[in-house]
Design a protein around this nucleic acid. Structure first.
Lengths: 224, 224
DNA sequence: TGACTTTAGTCGCAAATTGTGACTAATTCG
DNA sequence: CGAATTAGTCACAATTTGCGACTAAAGTCA
């Protein structure tokens, strides 16, 4: 039977999977371990009595990022495989999203591409998986993509991001048509000229009140 | 500051929201409090070291229901508002589904229609809400409805259940067409004569391997 | 300058999917 | 038997989707 000596440390931790869109792929923020120099872990803290889980998660995210995340949501509780996030019996995980340009990670924190994350405890590995699943699941019904973009963006940027999140190519005309139907964005009067090619109009996220019987976004669009 | 005297009780509980379809509405299972006679609560247990959360949840459900649930999934961790499920800092909640005909609740456990649940602690009230949201969210992508029906059922029963879950009337022909497209069910060679009217063919849940590019079920069907 | 390249944005139409009412089938009830 | 009741199917108009082709507004380079 495991001993439970120190009465002061809290019995559970709050861990946060912070996700951003870095160039052409998603990335997750890791913190260098204070003990072992070459170990990395998700940002986490022992829960504090009297503070809500969400508040703790936001605080953890803010401290690692230098900014509060644009969106945060609980993934669930993880208990499998002890060790690593302290030796807490249980850890509550959150996903957070932030535009890459907004974040300024504090020293000791680094973005790793999702395709190449450092070795983690089984528990935190499960959290990362859970985070990606949660993002996928929310994609149709909440404005996940917009929380990964700056306040103003071009439709091509938005489309590329959706393509990244859905891991699927989209057809330009169909994408824009669906966007229109969902009335999620509105044009600003600014344009951005990005090297060659015609300048693109900038848009902002501005969801209209959804009419009754509105079924999300449905970007189930085509291949190429 | 709250004291934390008894060193032996675990620091967190596992609570389960068990849902069934009872006639024309959904119902949730509650357990009569052992102390106060007229209090009810969701079935719960203190977590046991060395047992996974899912295992505990399944055990709690089984003990209350007399059967293991047909499906169970974690909703998340809840910490707001102390009291009630012991005085644990944190509770991990699960949703479970079971066909009404399969369940045989142990003495002290009763189904309450969702429209009329007994007074609960704020924590457990939040869990019930979370459970309903999780069911809604899963509806399109996992076979939630089938876990509320016996192994064999008529298409009308299935449709009524979907109407209940979606809180929306569906058109018969469209419903069947969508079902067919999703290849979720297959006919048995049995028929059931239920009072008046033509007998209905019985079906079983038998999802075919989903072809690439299959987008869930999409029962976004019509009104009258 | 003017041809060519590159990216943004739009149009229109064939094909597929959906919404819906009307129709047929198999029973029970009186 | 005929009316009532529930199951199951059909056909077709209306809408939505997939997608290629087209126009627009830059930059590049000889």
């Amino acid at each position: 039977m495991r001993d439970r000596s120190s009465g002061k440390s809290s019995s559970h931790t709050v861990d946060v999977v912070l996700v951003t869109a870095m160039g052409t792929e998603l990335a997750i923020l890791f913190t260098r371990s204070t003990t072992e120099r070459e170990r990395w872990s998700l940002p986490w803290k022992a829960a504090q009595a009297g503070e809500s889980l969400d508040a703790t998660a936001t605080r953890v995210a803010h401290e690692a990022l230098g900014e509060p995340p644009a969106w945060i949501e609980q993934i669930g509780a993880f208990a499998e495989g002890k060790r690593h996030p302290s030796d807490a019996d249980i850890s509550v995980a959150f996903v957070g999203l932030i535009p890459h340009e907004t974040a300024s990670p504090r020293p000791g924190n680094t973005w790793f591409p999702v395709t190449n994350i450092p070795p983690l405890s089984p528990r935190q590995r499960a959290m990362v998986e859970g985070a990606m699943e949660t993002i996928q699941a929310r994609l149709d019904h909440s404005p996940v993509a917009f929380r990964l973009l700056p306040p103003t963006f071009t439709l091509s940027e938005l489309q590329h991001l959706y393509e990244l999140l859905l891991a699927k190519r989209l057809h330009k005309a169909s994408f824009r048509r669906a966007l229109q139907a969902a009335s999620l964005v509105e044009p600003t009067d600014e344009w951005r000229s990005e090297g060659r090619g015609r300048p693109a109009q900038l848009y902002r996220y501005a969801p209209k009140k959804r009419r009754r019987g509105h079924r999300g976004v449905r970007f189930d669009l085509l291949h190429p």
